[in-house]
């Protein structure tokens, strides 16, 4: 039963993986059709590349702030929805809508709303005296990109955590009620530990994609201004597709893969600890 899946997975993962390792040792810049052996030049040039390290710095900001905000907002809202006595289904359904706006459209929508000529959000900001161009200013472009990601993906966290809340057993809560615990104490000592696994799953799913999906950056800032939104994922797109330097792209891709796997492993380890 496992065989077909394993075969497919092997093809889509092992073949590309070995190809990436091979490509990272080849030079594609002279003649992309006939790459020649390049020893470790791609690796060295990546590791010496200031833009590469800078893009990791931006990635850390994007991932840490993005995930943190999504997690806090997502969990908070799941709790709020869980506790409201009426209209839960309606609220949850409406709240889920951004999930189904493809990221590429989210980016377009963000660009549309923030355009200084005709953007509705830009107009609102102008009303309160903020005349800057959000996507064209280094200090505001990254927050805007993060907020687009938050807008799109927080609902996923909410839905998963909400599912966790609904699967909570009754007894521990009742026991806490009997003990006269305050809501915050119940939250801290009963509810959160019980939905911890849900949170970890949500984080795992998000952390897998937040590094590699760059659709919103692609359609809005393209890494700018002044490289302030150039995450490593976007830098990879640039190297692979604009520069068509598949060798260096493979090296960058492999380092990203290692980081993603490390992140994933860490979350799974927390997950496993939560189970015991």
């Amino acid at each position: 039963m496992l065989a077909p899946s394993v075969v497919i997975l092997a093809i889509i993962s092992i073949v590309p993986l070995f190809y990436m390792i091979y490509a990272s040792l080849m030079n594609y810049t002279l003649n992309p059709d006939q790459p020649v052996f390049y020893q470790l030049h791609n690796w060295l040039s990546v590791l010496r590349d200031a833009t590469y390290w800078h893009s990791w710095g931006r990635t850390v900001v994007f991932v840490v702030v993005g995930l943190a905000v999504e997690l806090l907002l997502g969990t908070g809202l799941a709790l709020a929805i869980y506790h409201i006595p009426k209209g839960r289904n309606l609220v949850a359904t409406l709240w889920m809508l951004p999930l189904f706006v493809a990221p590429i459209v989210t980016g377009l929508l963000g660009r549309f709303l923030l355009n200084t000529t005709y953007g509705m959000y830009a107009w609102l900001l102008q009303c309160i005296g903020m005349n800057t161009d959000i996507l064209g200013t280094t200090s505001t472009a990254m927050p805007a990109i993060i907020l687009m990601d938050v807008w799109e993906w927080t609902p996923l966290i909410t839905i998963i955590v909400l599912a966790g809340l609904q699967a909570m057993p009754e007894e521990p809560l009742e026991a806490a009620d009997v003990d006269g615990a305050s809501y915050w104490m119940k939250l801290r000592y009963v509810i959160l530990p019980l939905v911890k696994r849900a949170i970890v799953v949500a984080l795992l799913i998000r952390s897998m994609d937040i590094l590699r999906y760059v659709d919103t950056i692609l359609i809005t800032t393209q890494g700018g201004p002044a490289d302030s939104t150039k995450t490593v994922g976007y830098y990879l797109v640039q190297v692979a597709f604009q520069f068509q330097d598949f060798g260096r792209a493979a090296a960058i891709g492999l380092t990203m893969l290692v980081v993603t796997i490390f992140l994933g492993k860490s979350f799974i380890r927390i997950f496993a600890r939560g189970e015991e």
Binding site: L114, N115, T116, T117, N131, T132, D133, I134, L135, G136, T137, A141, T221, G224, P225
Partner: peptide, 10 residues
């Protein structure tokens, strides 16, 4: 002020 986020389209 929009100039730094405009390409030719913007």
């Amino acid at each position: 002020p929009g100039s730094t986020s405009w390409d030719w389209n913007g």
